[in-house]
Amino acid sequence: MSSPKRTTIYDVAREAGVAASTVSRAFSNPRRVNATTREHVLEIAERLGYRPNPLATALQSGRTATIAMLVPDITNPHFFGTIHGAERRASAAGITFILSYTEESADNERSQIERLARSVDGFVLAASRMSDGTTVELAREHNLVLVNREVEGLPSAVVDNGPGSWQIVEHLASLGHRSLVYLSGPHQSWLAGERWRALRAGAEQRGMTAARLGPFPPRVVGGGAAADAALVSGATAVVAHNDLLAIGILRRFAERGVRVPQEISVVGYDDIFGADFCVPALTTLAGPHEEAGRAAVELLLRRGSPSAAETAPRRVTLSSHLVIRDSTGPAPR
């Protein structure tokens, strides 16, 4: 038994009494079709069960119905939630989602944007490593939205680490710590700078001393050198740039026989999967990273819609909170 014949654009055109090109424009570029004619075409198409080919519509409209998300390190669990949230929002909108990673390189990030520009309608840049100037320059030609990065004039979705970093300082001060050291991530990281500024301001407010060391690779492998530097600093509390670095620090302390938290406390950022599995379980700053991914794609979709572009928010800010576990304790006497 043969399958029913698929309704084509020519079937709709013949039934509606218009040219096939008019039917095509009614779907792909409705502003170029008289409103009455368009309503008539859509009514006929609905009755005949016609559905336009997405690829053909994209080619005719100049849009691809595809977006790309760029992340610095695809192996970092911190980005899993952001990626998941972005992909789900894109899927709900019927948008194809491309994921690429830039290996912590600003040059790679820029080259990938330029290479993919003709294939996608816009980019979500997660924790971008590019300079403000380069980002603004690219935004003049491409549709960009940032996640956990801010550049003046560009839309972004940010988990607010400022108040969260103050929570870290308050927690450590309540345990009697008078000194902390921030073991920083990559020097191109906007988050590293934001976290350090908030930690330093909070420490000054509490009469604590604070120092910044690094940069260190934001991975477990960077924990060895970071831990050794922390011990030399003499601080009683360590705040790592992210949880992967913090887990590497815990491992190095264990190798050297340094007891956590009896001799030194350790705090991370991001609350990645596994942060509560390490020994001791890691105190860390958590945030709604999946929601940040969803919000970024929503901003991108709104920017691509002429009717919504003027009212689209420029910045979405999400709150973070401290998750207290076993890696922090009273300051040693």
Rank of each mutant, 00 (worst) to 15 (best):
T328I: 10
A173L: 00
R251Y: 12
P261S: 14
H177C: 03
E141R: 11
F80N: 07
R140L: 05
R206E: 01
V159E: 02
R149N: 08
L146Y: 06
H78M: 09
A19C: 07
E194W: 00
P52Q: 01
D243K: 04
A211M: 10
I83Q: 00
A90I: 05
A35H: 09
Y182N: 01
A240E: 01
H171Q: 01
E114D: 12
L300M: 07
V169T: 00
A240C: 05
I98A: 15
F277Q: 12
N34P: 09
L125G: 04
T134E: 09
L70Q: 10
R251Q: 14
G62Y: 13
E298Y: 02
R314D: 02
L285M: 08
L250Q: 01
N76S: 10
G207C: 01
A93Q: 10
R38D: 09
V181T: 00
R31C: 09
F123W: 02
R178W: 00
R14F: 00
P313H: 11
I247F: 05
G17D: 02
E15D: 01
N242D: 05
V145N: 01
I324S: 14
E298N: 10
R197V: 12
I95E: 15
Q60C: 12
S179R: 10
L300D: 03
R197K: 13
R197L: 15
H78S: 09
R38N: 07
D270Q: 13
G222F: 01
A203N: 04
C278I: 15
L183R: 07
A225C: 05
A312F: 11
A56G: 13
A127E: 08
R14A: 09
G164C: 06
A35E: 15
V120A: 07
L172Y: 00
S100L: 15
E298M: 14
D271T: 14
A225K: 04
A286W: 05
I113G: 08
R89P: 04
V232Q: 13
P52E: 02
P313F: 06
H142G: 03
A35D: 14
V232Y: 04
R140M: 06
I95Y: 11
G49E: 10
D276N: 07
P155L: 08
P261F: 11
P280K: 14
L191H: 04
I113H: 01
A246F: 02
A106R: 11
V12H: 03
T284Y: 03
S265G: 14
V266P: 03
Y269N: 15
N242H: 00
L175F: 01
